[in-house]
Amino acid sequence: MGGNAVGQPHRLRFLEYGLTILIVITLNFLLPRVIPGDPFLVISSQSAAEEEIVLTAEQREFFFDYYGLDKSIGEQYVAYLGGLLRGNLGFSLYYKEPVSRIIMRRLGWTAFMVVSSLVLSTIIGSVLGCISAWHRDKWPDKFLFFKFIVLAEIPVFLLGLIILFVFAAGLGLFPLAGAVTHFARYKNCWEKIFDVLHHACLPVLVLTISRMGGMYLLSRNSMTTVLKKDYLRTARAKGLPERRVLYRHALRNALLPIVTRVFLSLGTLIGGAILVENVFAYPGLGLLMREAVRLHDYHLIQGIFLVVTLLVLLANFFADLVYAKLDPRVNQTNMQGG
């Protein structure tokens, strides 16, 4: 669903996304049923460690009945789909709360982190990429290129760990964990905003750096290709000032692939966010997912997975729409094709 199907009519694309969503939901439904073992048994057989959940026989009975595990698989599937449509993602065994409510509470932090690093990395990465392309093979390009190749390859959680230990633990410049200071009393709302930003600084920075490399390489490539085009020679031949040629003619065309990448890279970025949240104990969905894994809270794990996947799919769909709007050539093929 990347670039290869861009020229297809929208209705077909819509169908494809629908199919993907259905597959994800079916996978989510089948996983606990196909894999050998019994989640309730796992929970009830474990020794009562500090925070483990232990189920009594009655509770076990209740959950079997509640999830309709004694019904046929077809009936279960229909019931599951119906529940999802009503926004029912299941019930968390540990938090004793509907999964959807827990997720809604945590989603904001993840979204804040992902969106801000998405914006920052896109701007910084593409600006540096363009500068690099304009000075291709001179020292600014060589310097930036090497630096970004290294940065692009360092895994995000390793980068996070070293930054955490150097800047927060070693130098004490930033808070070690969390998104706000606990039990803090703020004099005014500016102090609160400062506190939130201070906590978000390192996680956002790490996520930004990890994605900036890819953005930089993409925009450098894109700009280099555009710079070789005939219409730029024409623009120069018309006697336009270099500044106008670069910003009006080259930049506009070079930005096209960057815009789609903003949405398409969301899947990888969310994977990174999950790890970064765990490095900095940032209270978003990623941290929640690790807690859920540790506590064997399968409904919570699956709920988070479903929400994250749907968001990513939505972003991809949006990318297709934006691309069609931005690139007139796509619209043309659309008309011919459909």
């Binding site: 669903m1 990347g2 494809e16 606990p32 899947g267 969310i270 997912m289 894994v293």
Partner: peptide
């Protein structure tokens, strides 16, 4: 090819966590 398209858009790390959690 459709299957490959689907694999490309799926966010892989969250799905890996789910699978690893279930498989043990």
């Amino acid at each position: 090819m459709r299957l490959i398209d689907i694999m490309i858009v799926l966010p892989d790390f969250p799905l890996m966590i789910v699978l690893a959690a279930f498989l043990g």
